[in-house]
Design a protein around this nucleic acid. Structure first.
Lengths: 154, 154
DNA sequence: TATTGTTATACTCTATAACTATA
DNA sequence: TATAGTTATAGAGTATAACAATA
């Protein structure tokens, strides 16, 4: 495919998703008591999937430095959404995990984000909806291959 | 459309988004090595397409506040990538446009970013690429209406 | 009075570098 | 010596609110 088209395509995708996140993302619920920034939300998502993960592990999965993650973890601990304790087998390492209030908050936020997004998708024809599915699957397949290639390189 | 289908669609979009951010997100940070952040890059892109645009116009297209845009524009002006002058027909308005050095910088970035972002989209047929565009425009229009509704409420 | 843009303030996220504690 | 995490510092981006200039 034409290189310029590929570049345009990449830009369009980034712009669109950026707009989606600004509109319906966890940050957009400003007036709600359940409010997490996008990076806090992503961190929680990783800890949901990898209970007891270390800070380095989360940092690597986020594509951020341990220093940056340390701050994000601080804020989540302060809010009571995760707990942080020292590993006994290796006292340098942290053990991070979502607390019960954290789980409840995530459930609520996830439901809110989805419902807000769904709100804005009403009016989509079944045909348009199918096309959205197709494109999402298409993009996901491209990202997955790219991801595993990256993982393989590490 | 069926509510469950809409919800499924919303979930698919969210999942895809997370995956894309995980794959491309950290890499988009590396753009700063070319002295342009992702938001600065997006701003330049808008000004390339809309020469002489006002600050409000750019802010609306970015989904950001005029205040936030004012800062981004400051940094781009300082770097000499865009110019900013007052409109003569309406002296409240700004006229923003890319400078020649700005154009050269964008060309350089364009070339560099191509190899990083676009490699994940290679293999897309022209038809698939068109479909991606269509869906992105579709989603963006839904978000933009939502955005302007929000703006209208304020 | 409404609109356009800026500034003051405060917060999140980010990286680099210097640091402590542990292995 | 190497690794895990923290802190200090600095910079970008963000929003709200108060403000100036212009319409």
């Amino acid at each position: 495919m034409d290189k310029d088209r590929v570049m345009e395509c990449a830009t369009t995708i980034m712009d669109t998703f950026h707009l989606i996140m600004r509109t319906v993302g966890p940050e957009s619920q400003k007036r709600s008591s359940l409010s997490l920034s996008f990076q806090q939300f992503r961190t929680m998502k990783i800890l949901e999937r990898h209970e007891g993960a270390s800070l380095s592990f989360v940092a690597e999965h986020m594509g951020a430095t341990p220093s940056a993650m340390s701050k994000v973890v601080d804020s989540l601990v302060e809010q009571g959404y995760i707990y942080r304790r020292t590993s006994e087998s290796d006292r340098r390492k942290l053990i991070l995990a979502v607390t019960d209030p954290g789980k409840q908050a995530m459930d609520a936020i996830h439901a809110q984000v989805l419902s807000r997004l769904a709100e804005r998708l009403t009016g989509l024809s079944p045909c348009e909806c199918e096309m959205v599915y197709l494109v999402m699957d298409l993009l996901r397949s491209k990202m997955v291959t790219a991801q595993s290639e990256i993982t393989h390189q590490l």
